[in-house]
């Protein structure tokens, strides 16, 4: 049954943009996958290991700025900056993780918020990163390697492949020692340590992995959108979105973040296009409401709810 659902889902994902063609649908579909990548990356540390970060946009920014700098500084195709962005994100995660992961629960979360805001202010003052104005990708494609297309369709399939790779990795991790250890850490750090788990080290691994994949999402974002500034690249709203998508679908589950993205991104894009510029204010209100709903009614998210019905019926 699960296999059948999965096969149908994959088939739909492959043909969806061909059936619902049109610039708007294609763009929303591509963005949905991009956010699903970011939220699934967040899920590694925030969902599986239960260390709720609200600073993940910093790693996203590493990827986005890495790609932008590859073009602005060296004239390379933006995607060539991917290793730089991922490397920077993983390094930053290691540096930041050692002190902050010692903090428990809410204190860790608050530290990530503070850190992200600090970095946003820093980035706004660094000329190489475009300071407050931001950086652009190539205005006109110079070769196919610039991955600059007018249609969103190529991005859709690129993101779909990356998301599939990330979910495959996550699926493998879930079943490995690391997956068990992360879930144990989420359950009780004290008990985890008494069973021989080097908790600090595993949390750090999870954060570094999560940061690296989040940076991939950031680099892909720049490749598609062609522009990054402190708000879009390192602004706190994006951190919150990753968290909410994962939590809504089911944090610490394989498909939870994807399901969250499937619901929220189209909702946001549609409300933005209907309400125009005022949309972003509504977005904050909607997200606040969703946080409340999850906290009060369904801490496990949509997947847990469905699993509950399944068992009952």
């Amino acid at each position: 049954m699960a296999r059948f659902v999965l096969a149908v889902a994959i088939a739909i994902a492959l043909v969806f943009p061909l059936v619902f063609s049109g610039a708007f649908y294609e763009r929303v579909a591509a963005l949905t996958l991009l956010y699903a990548i970011a939220a699934s990356a967040w899920n590694l540390i925030g969902g599986y290991a239960g260390q709720v970060s609200v600073g993940h946009v910093v790693f996203f920014g590493c990827g986005a700025y890495g790609a932008a700098v590859a073009y602005s500084e060296w004239g390379l195709p933006p995607i060539a900056g991917l290793p730089l962005g991922v490397g920077a994100a993983v390094l930053l995660a290691a540096l930041v993780g050692v002190p902050t992961l010692r903090l428990s629960g809410h204190y860790f979360t608050m530290a990530t918020v503070a850190l992200a805001e600090l970095i946003r202010i820093l980035v706004g003052n660094v000329p190489v990163l475009g300071a407050a104005v931001g950086l652009m990708g190539p205005a006109v494609p110079r070769s196919v390697w610039d991955l600059s297309f007018t249609s969103s369709l190529p991005y859709y399939y690129l993101f779909l492949a990356v998301l599939a790779g990330l979910l495959l990795f996550t699926w493998w991790m879930e079943r490995s020692r690391m997956g068990f250890y992360l879930r144990a850490i989420k359950g009780s750090e004290r008990a985890a340590r008494s069973l021989g788990i080097p908790v600090g080290r595993y949390k750090l691994y999870a954060l570094m992995l999560s940061a690296g994949f989040t940076a991939v999402a950031g680099a892909l974002y720049l490749v598609m959108v062609g522009f990054v500034d402190p708000d879009s690249g390192v602004g706190i709203l994006l951190s919150v979105k990753m968290l909410i998508m994962a939590a809504l679908g089911g944090a610490g589950t394989l498909f939870g973040p994807l399901i969250g993205a499937l619901i929220l991104v189209p909702l946001e894009e549609i409300s933005n296009s209907l309400l125009g510029g005022q949309g972003s204010g509504v977005t904050f209100v909607v997200y606040g409401g969703i946080i409340l709903l999850i906290a009060v009614f369904q801490p496990g998210g949509i997947l847990a709810m469905v699993a509950g019905w399944w068992r009952k019926s």
């Binding site: 879930r183 144990a184 989420k186 359950g187 009780s188 004290r190 008990a191 610490g252």
Partner: peptide, 11 residues
């Protein structure tokens, strides 16, 4: 083992 059990309740 612990006086107050610390089982991983979600697993």
């Amino acid at each position: 083992t612990y006086q107050v059990p610390h089982t991983f309740t979600d697993m």
